[in-house]
Design a protein around this nucleic acid. Structure first.
Length: 493
RNA sequence: GCCCCCAUCGUCUAGUGGCCUAGGACACCGCCCUUUCACGGCGAAGGCAGGGGUUCAAAUCCCCUUGGGGGUACCA
């Protein structure tokens, strides 16, 4: 079998978004599974919108997801260059070939003319297509227009007879009537080729075997097939994968919140979780499995199993999956992944000491079962590193300003000061004593302590939290809470 | 407008004519575990868009309607 050569061809006009990443992923998975080649090609022919920053963002996103490319920027390869802006001579060459064979022609129409043409067509309820008026200009007429200083574009001389059929790996045979097409532009006045032309020249020259891309490209495929044929190129296999939608069922965009891959990384999503979730968007394996490690995806991915219908991006499921992967991490790995988030939150120094790192590790051990995103750390781990300066209103009301909380805390502050070590075996008797003394349930003594030391009413077990904080801090925070209660009570009366 | 694609629980999906009284996962709800919050366990609720065919038999095949998405650029 021939080598599988696939490509991801983003245009550097924004960040790598979820949709693009999913397209890249399907290409990458196929390449890796078939021991083929994954090409990254930058489609930067839109001079006005392409930026260097976007390119960097896209590469960063690709790296974050672990999708390495065999040919492309930073890598080179035998089919370069991999920036369309550097392949102009190639597009020129093939455009000339079309000119020679009269499958392309110069068009001198201005945009005003074109607009008028479309308006008129609409008014007469005809399709707003280019009418081919420059197609049969004589050599003399073209010369005259050039002499008059008119600029021109190159248009493809479309074949209007019959149908063009796309043989799609996912959708089967899709037929288009050629009369639907028009003589589309292949070279712009700015000297750049248009997408529909450049993509064909590149995919053919780069010997791409499978063109896997979003369904939004399906309707343009017949145009491209006509170019392949006019140029005598072999037509690759096509696979148009479904779109990704927002919760409102419209195409996913910034309006729907985070859609940039690097933003997800910054919010504390793991590479594996992200890749797993993206794979699930439009692909499924069987009736039982949803968690797939990257290596498993490479093994099990199949174009045949890609769904035909658009998928709604479900942040909740991504979060759940991220939690699954977070819980699966061993402590050193989790610590390495989470440290930047502690630093960003100002909980530890930029160059943490070994004691700090050890503490972070201990904290993570207790937090791990409830972690969904790493950026939650800023909130859920703060009390391990910083004083509790205020209590959540609800937590204070239910945990401190109720029942005998003040007496219980006073009792605890006194007795916790006497225990030798500070761990579950030594702590337990103290809480038991408090329960007996105040004739109450364990929760009645734990909740006040929890609020006192964390400021909230949700945290890991006190038997885990207290040893990490140590006796001094614990007792201090309990005393602070007692003072707080006293002040509140005075305010009341 | 015209063309193309699509249509199973709220969401992602399994299902390729009988195995379907339609399976799983997330979310939701309830219960258990429990010092809170999570985690975990158990359970409930929830779907074949509608209408016609074909067939002994249809979620599965065909047609229509409806709905959604995409294309129709000198964007990609």
């Amino acid at each position: 079998m021939d080598t599988v050569r696939v490509r991801f061809a983003p245009s550097p006009t924004g960040f790598l978004h979820v949709g693009g990443a999913r397209t890249a992923l399907f290409n990458w998975l196929l390449a890796r599974q078939k021991h083929g080649v994954f090409v990254l090609r930058i489609e930067d022919t839109d001079m006005a919108r392409s930026t260097e920053a976007s390119l960097e963002g896209i590469l960063e996103g690709m790296r974050f997801l672990g999708m390495d490319w065999d040919e492309g920027p930073d890598k080179g390869g035998d089919f370069g260059p991999y920036f369309q802006s550097q392949r102009l001579h190639l597009y020129k060459e093939y455009a000339d070939q079309l000119l020679q064979s009269e499958r392309a022609y110069e068009c001198f129409c201005t945009s005003e003319e074109l607009n008028a043409m479309r308006e008129e067509a609409r008014a007469e309820k005809r399709d707003p297509k280019y009418d081919g008026r420059c197609r049969h200009l004589s050599a003399d007429e073209r010369e005259a227009k050039r002499a008059a200083g008119l600029t021109s574009v190159l248009r493809f001389a479309t074949d209007y007879d019959g149908q063009t059929t796309v043989d799609d790996r996912i959708r089967g045979l899709v037929a288009f009537d050629n009369r639907q097409l028009d003589d589309f532009v292949i070279f712009k006045t700015d000297g750049m080729p248009t997408y529909n032309f450049a993509v064909v020249v590149d995919d053919a020259l780069m010997q791409i075997s499978h063109v896997i891309r979003g369904e939004d490209h399906l309707s343009n495929t017949p145009k491209q097939i006509q170019i392949y044929e006019a140029l005598g190129f072999a037509v690759p296999q096509f696979a148009h994968i479904p779109m990704i939608l927002g919760p409102d069922k419209t195409r996913l965009s910034k309006r729907h919140g985070a859609t940039s891959v690097t933003q997800f990384r910054d919010e504390g999503y793991l590479q594996e979780a992200m890749v797993n979730y993206l794979a699930l968007l439009g692909w499924g394996y069987d009736d039982s499995q949803t968690v797939f490690a990257p290596s498993e995806l490479i093994e099990k991915f199949a174009l045949e199993r890609v769904s035909k219908n658009p998928a709604v991006f479900d942040l909740k499921k991504l979060e759940w999956l991220n939690g699954v992967y977070l819980r699966d991490l061993d402590l050193p790995t989790l610590t390495a992944a989470a440290l930047p988030f502690f630093q960003r939150a100002g909980l530890v120094d930029e160059s943490p000491t070994t004691e700090q790192t050890a503490r972070v590790e201990r904290v993570l051990e207790t937090l791990q079962p409830r972690l969904k995103r790493l950026d939650e750390i800023e909130v859920s781990a703060s009390y391990f590193f910083q004083d509790v300066v205020e209590y959540e209103e609800k937590a204070a009301r239910k945990g401190l300003l109720k029942g005998s909380a003040q007496e219980i805390l006073t009792f605890l502050a006194k007795h916790l000061n006497t225990v030798s070590t500070f761990d579950e075996p030594t702590l337990k008797p103290v809480f038991a004593a408090a329960m007996e003394q105040f004739d109450c349930k364990l929760g009645d003594v734990m909740q006040p302590v929890r609020v006192a030391v964390t400021g909230t009413n949700s945290s890991p077990s006190m038997y885990e939290v207290l040893p990490i904080l140590g006796r001094e801090v614990t007792v201090q925070r309990i005393q602070n809470a007692v003072t707080f209660i006293t002040v509140k009570q005075e305010e009341e009366s």
